[in-house]
């Protein structure tokens, strides 16, 4: 069952990681890094899926994939915030270091349902990372969709993730991009206020819109409410949930929310299914 970086093999035990090697590490924000992992075999994934990443000797964490599914040659890309022991170790891996990878897991963003519809992508903070593969896919197939709006909020201007890429997307004339910060600084000339305040500014037809929402849970709750106020039904909203995960494959129990396992049935849920679960405190 030995598995090395040189001789990859499909392992029968889904709890055993494959070995990858860090190709590149880029600092995005003061506490956020993007890692590019070199795998021995092409790594196919769908936007919104996640991997279980192992920092050998420290532990494992569920991290969403933030790269472009159409460009596997770029390597396997994750964007990680340094918040706990495992994410600290992962985010401090250097080029050449080894990393354990299990995945891809979970149900991602359903892109095909948005064809011929307007698309609203609502992101808060690091929530932009799991949405980035979806953004790549929507932009590369831009003609298939109606209006496309990206609404992004962060705490402060220095917390704006993927800022160079945001500037790049903003130069396109076929995407409506609005960015806001909760707290301004003196060099900030943009919007100030929570991300939900951007919803009324975006141009889209609420009855023919698919919305993709990712961010802190409280932001998603108010974001979904703002979209609903505008007339977008829950059936047309998709939210990505975060819960404690030890296995990623429905065997450890940790990520349950009532009837569902976030790892297996999510992490992306259609809001008509998720909303009843989220309306019960501490479910």
């Amino acid at each position: 069952m030995a598995l090395t970086a040189e001789t990859p093999r499909i392992v029968a035990d889904p709890m055993v990681p494959r070995v990858g090697r860090i190709r590149k590490r880029v600092r995005e924000l003061s506490d956020v890094w993007t890692l590019t992992v070199e795998m021995d075999e092409p790594f196919a994934f769908a936007p919104g899926q996640f991997n279980m990443l192992t920092a050998f000797g420290v532990g494992e964490a569920a991290i969403s994939i933030s790269g472009d599914p159409a460009r596997p040659g770029e390597g396997l890309i994750h964007t990680i915030r340094d918040v706990g022991p495992v994410s600290h170790a992962l985010s401090h891996l250097e080029p050449g270091d080894y990393i354990g990878v299990r995945g891809p897991y979970g149900a991602g963003w359903p892109v095909e349902v948005a064809e011929h519809c307007d698309v609203v992508i609502l992101a808060g903070g690091l929530g932009l990372a799991p949405l980035r593969p979806l953004i790549y896919e929507v932009l590369s197939g831009r003609k298939k969709y109606g209006k496309v709006a990206l609404l992004f909020g962060a705490r402060t201007p220095t917390d704006l993730l993927f800022r160079p890429e945001l500037e790049q997307w903003r130069r396109r004339l076929d995407v409506d991009i609005h960015v806001t910060v909760d707290t301004s600084t003196e060099d900030w000339y943009g919007n100030v206020g929570v991300v939900t305040t951007l919803v009324p500014r975006a141009a889209f037809d609420p009855q023919h819109t698919i919305a993709y929402v990712c961010g802190p849970e409280i932001m998603m709750r108010f974001g979904a409410a703002a979209l609903r106020d505008k007339g977008v039904p829950d059936e047309a909203m998709y939210l990505s949930m975060e819960r404690n995960m030890k296995c990623g494959i429905g065997l450890c129990g940790h990520c349950q929310i009532g009837t569902v396992f976030v790892c297996r049935d999510g992490p992306v849920f259609r809001n008509d299914k998720l909303r009843p679960l989220m309306s019960v405190k501490e479910l």
Partner: peptide, 15 residues
């Protein structure tokens, strides 16, 4: 579940 060993130029995971 598994054991891993690392050196500068190799890493192995053994189920």
């Amino acid at each position: 579940l598994w054991k891993a060993a690392r050196s500068a130029d190799a890493a192995t995971v053994e189920a």
